[in-house]
Amino acid sequence: MVDAVVAFFVLGIIAQLLGAKIPFTDGLYKSLSMFLMIAIGLKGGMALQQHVDPALLLMSVAVIGFGLLLPLIAYPLLRYFGQLDKINAGAIAAHYGSVSVATYAVAVALLEANSIAYEAYFPLFVVLLEMPAIVVGLVLAKGNFKIINREFIKKELVANQSILLMVGSLIIGFIGGESVQKLTPFFVDLFPGILALFLLKMGLVAGEQLGTLKKNSVFLISFAVLMPMLGGLAGTGLALLLGLSAGGIALMAVLGASASYIAVPAAMKESLPEANAGMSITASLGITFPFNVLINVPFFIALGQFLGV
């Protein structure tokens, strides 16, 4: 049986393929993304307040290391099998080393629907995994570390929208105490509905991207399906090493399997304007996102339950 929230994604794809004109303004889409990032951070902060874990520092270092490793798996595949130049290979590797907040939100929704517990500090891991891949991708593309300067750090690390909203709301959820409860009717109770609307829009966009697949090589489709499987397995391995719960194993695998299509494209547009953005977006949004949401996420949730027992 397909989850109701995920079904909206399928509805979006069908609507796009049938040519239905569903009005979805850019402003609404950005507002829904903001809501998801704030809600995830807030929920994480509230839960973290009740379950502070001293081992979190070491886990965070391991997760950052994982974020640095993922693009190094993708890059040789892109260079050898895809015959891509360093710039495009570095850019696509950065997308696949980073995470998709939407895929994470879908996994969380499925875990909660099946009453599977997971660690409260996962939003922190989502934030930590956003950036390392961008740095590695840029270094691989340029072949040197010169791109990592003060302006880059300020723009991409400190002032990045996704990181700022998620870290900020995580801190608010952590220090807010009782007053945060006033926000739960909006950010917690409405989360599944807002996610469904967001996935409807993602379905429309993914359906649009499917049209461009005819122009792209079989290699891109193969890579966009293989890399989530490899990343997911690597995430599962890390989760087992860290001793996470069944839900934690599933979420770490999903973070490894997901590819960014919001934060990283914006960073690449600024730092690597010569890279082909269409190829990265087609792979991460047109192929990987539907594959993860419909097939990979349920598999990793089942795998987490199997290994977590």
Partner: peptide, 19 residues
């Protein structure tokens, strides 16, 4: 790469049945 990917997909299908 399509061969490797489809082989991985078959492997995942096998493990899906197991789990």
């Amino acid at each position: 790469l399509p061969l490797i990917t489809s082989l991985c997909l078959f492997a995942f299908s096998y493990f899906s049945v197991v789990i």
